[in-house]
Design a protein around this nucleic acid. Structure first.
Lengths: 297, 297
DNA sequence: CCGCATTGATACCGTACGGATATGAGTGAC
DNA sequence: GTCACTCATATCCGTACGGTATCAATGCGG
């Protein structure tokens, strides 16, 4: 019984995402008929129907839903293998650290300085990225280790918490709410977050598709009252702005800064970085409780 | 830049494991020359040397080591996708539960009975397997959920602890040590465990390659004094044997029975089983503290 | 020191499979 | 009923994968 091939998975994911053979074929840079045949062969190979097609619409079967999910993770794993092997073969090895700009609690310089003194240290290459970028980079092998705030999708990653701190809400200084010293979630009803979701936790649909905003853009939108924003205390402290007030919110889940890396990593350079990160935060008296042990054989 | 293909990864893993092109080719059911060429093409594609070969021996480069690890997980992910899709397409859906025989703290019947009453329940198919079998089955899609004791390699799995209980050591009843009510690790110096490792925690190399032993075999070996064995308290209670004494050992790490499932699973049947498992153990007054929250986006 | 055995690399060839083009067939819209 | 749309089928072609034959390099024994 021969194996599934990467090509088949790529084809299937394209069709399952587009739900349209023509567009999927275009996206894959090929003609539609061979794509149809490939999907048919895949279904025959699995002995399972993946797509229900009429001439007017294409839908996923339950088995197709399952395969779409698993195929994505399998494709991630394959391209991660490819990227990591490429990187491991480079003559100048580097430690690729993915992080969100400014989400380092101000400890990045100290961490890098301490890391340089490590035995197993490699030159560090910083990869600044937006929301979700870090995790994606770790998963597909573009980064070796990441610094990022919870919550995030930690599937396939090992995680070590570094610092837990309360989150504040950023408001226009002129906002009536800014007169209060502490807010309650209900006070923020009707306000939107940068990703378009409701700020009071109600499950209203996003007002617009989440765009990628940088810090300056967010602060500007906060200043003009378009949005409010939750951010860790340390980040607020580093961005004092006259037009913006930072206020605590009752019951707002705190944010934890963590260092994360791919579970299968055995790189000494990564291990050294994690060790250094922990000790830097511990030395600064900011350390979190030890992370729960998860069994390894 | 085209993708890596599953075939290439399979070939590379075979060669990297055998460190011998001829044997690897035989294992793959093909001739040696095309295998050599495939590996060369793979190295060219990656732009990275993976194997150092002389005519007398083959060795992995550092990049090869990295790829071997990542390729194995990628291949696991691919065959898991295949297996799960096949299973999801079966007209009679089942919940495939992997467990170690008798490592259920005696709660299996209650769990199954409670599970049957669940809304999302499917017929349960039990898969009894030896050490490490459960994890492998979860990872490559042969099982949907597993019941097994820590520690184990939990990469890629979500885990929910059910019951933590002390482990005891099984000794021949006639052993002088059996006269004591509690032992210390040092008392077991020189004794071997079923997997051939030293029972006192010293890092002596295994005396023989770990064989797969079933319970009856292990008990027999304990009775004749060949080995000692650590086992959870509940398991000892279910196997009272006149020729065997069970004694607590100071500082012996307890065993935790957990329910585990693939992280990417979204199956309601699995979720229901996990919920039932937790509640059965909770109702029995054996529940463990809640597992640590791990962030999910 | 020189064969000989071992083992990976190279050369060459046939075939099977993946992809393109052309066309058919079913379905919903007007 | 006709047209537009979309997926399936038929057929052809090129490439790339695998097989056989052979070479080249290395280590070992006589």
């Amino acid at each position: 019984m021969s194996d599934l091939e990467v090509r088949q998975l790529r084809y299937f994911v394209a069709v399952a995402e587009e739900l349209h053979f023509g567009r999927a074929a275009e996206r894959l840079g090929m003609a539609q008929p061979p794509l149809s045949r490939a999907i048919r062969d895949l279904e025959r190979h699995l002995g399972v129907g993946l797509l229900e097609r009429t001439t007017r619409q294409v839908r996923l079967t339950p088995a197709g839903e399952v395969l779409l999910r698993d195929a994505r993770t399998a494709l991630d794993a394959v391209s991660a293998a490819e990227r990591r092997a490429r990187h491991a073969g480079q003559p100048v090895r580097t430690l690729r650290l993915a992080l969100k700009a400014d989400h380092d609690a101000g400890m990045l310089p100290r961490m890098l300085a301490a890391y340089e003194r490590e035995e197993a240290a490699l030159p560090v290459e910083l990869q600044l990225g937006g929301r979700g970028e870090q995790v994606a980079a770790l998963r597909d092998g573009r980064a070796d280790v990441a610094l990022l705030p919870t919550p995030f999708d930690d599937r396939g990653l090992d995680v070590e918490p570094l610092l837990t701190e309360p989150r504040l809400v950023a408001l226009p200084a002129a906002d009536p709410l800014a007169a209060r010293t502490e807010l309650r979630p209900a006070d923020l009803a009707g306000r939107l977050l940068p990703d378009g979701t409701a700020a009071d936790g109600s499950d209203a649909p996003p007002a617009w598709p989440p765009r990628s905003l940088d810090l300056a853009q967010i602060f500007n939108l906060v200043e003009v009252g378009s949005i409010v924003w939750f951010l860790p205390e340390s980040l607020a402290r580093r961005h004092p702005r006259p037009e913006i007030a930072y206020r605590p919110v009752a019951d707002l889940a705190p944010s934890t800064l963590v260092v994360a890396w791919p579970r299968e990593s055995r790189s000494p350079a990564v291990a050294a970085f994690v060790r250094v990160a922990r000790s830097v935060f511990a030395d600064a008296g900011l350390s979190s409780p030890a992370s729960p042990a998860s069994g390894r054989s």
